[in-house]
Simulated assay, not measured.
Amino acid sequence: MGKSLYSVLALSTGLLLTTNAFAAVSGNIGGSSNYLWRGVTQSNDAVAIQGGLDYTHESGFYAGTWASNVDFGNDTSYEVDLYTGYAGNISENLSYDIGYLYYAYPDAEGSLDFGELHGALSWQWVELSYAHVVNAGDDVAAAPFDNKDLSYIAATVSVPLTEKVNLSLHYGYSSGEVVEAWFAEKHYADYHLSLSTDTSIGTVSFMLADTDLTADDAKIVLGYSYGFEL
């Protein structure tokens, strides 16, 4: 559940496909000391190895996939995300991203897969986003809970401190019957502060994250990712 659906677009130098159309294919690989999705660990507070592939077109269309190991305390061992959408500029400082993200758990015993529609608006350093589940497996939330009643609204401020160092502040709010089924609470907030820096061998990040869930504690997460063009 961890591929940030609002950061999947990695625009880079175009690969010439036709005379007038450019597209790019890129990849990324890395790891994290704790895989968090909306503030909640997906790896039982253990290390996660992650990676993905992205395709972007000059029209704004993008598609990709991303994978990570997970630990839910059962036989489910990995997650594969598939996503697609359109992103572009409304004006010089205002941009948008509209898409669909499917979370798959191929080796899960039950039917845990689900998909979300999302939309985001970004203005300079500020991004506002909203996502809502539109399809879900029968075991995402057991009856009598509605397994598609899950929404997420978030605000993120990303400030470049230097050419290579970035500061990010994030607040998110999850609500719906799925939240109640998972955590016995009707809604919760997650928030984090992160610092990231680009180096010659990849991007290194430090995050301090927490939620207001009753049984949750603040977490420090170290991450590394390396991006490349194909």
Rank of each mutant, 00 (worst) to 15 (best):
M1Y: 10
Y6C: 01
Y6V: 12
L9V: 15
S12L: 03
T18W: 05
T19N: 13
V25N: 05
S26L: 08
Y35E: 13
V40N: 05
Q42H: 02
D45K: 12
Q50A: 10
G52F: 06
G52W: 09
D54C: 00
Y55V: 10
Y55Q: 01
G60W: 03
G64S: 04
T65H: 00
D75F: 00
D75G: 11
E79T: 01
E79C: 01
G85F: 07
G85S: 04
N89W: 02
I90W: 11
E92I: 01
L94P: 10
D97L: 12
D97H: 13
G99R: 02
L101Q: 11
A108V: 08
G110D: 09
G110I: 05
S111C: 00
G115I: 08
W123F: 15
Q124H: 11
V126A: 14
V126D: 10
V126P: 00
V126W: 13
E127Q: 15
Y130W: 11
V133Q: 11
N135D: 15
A136F: 02
G137T: 08
V140H: 06
P144A: 02
D146L: 03
N147V: 07
S151P: 03
Y152F: 14
I153L: 12
A154F: 04
A155I: 14
A155Y: 07
A155T: 14
S158A: 14
S158Q: 12
T162E: 07
Y171Q: 12
V178Q: 03
E180K: 13
E180G: 00
A181C: 05
W182G: 12
F183Q: 08
K186S: 15
K186M: 00
Y188T: 01
D190E: 11
D190M: 03
Y191V: 04
S194H: 04
L195Y: 04
T203A: 08
F206Q: 07
F206K: 03
L208H: 14
L208C: 02
L208S: 11
D210N: 15
D216L: 02
K219L: 04
K219V: 13
L222V: 13
G223S: 10
Y224E: 03
Y224T: 02
F228R: 01
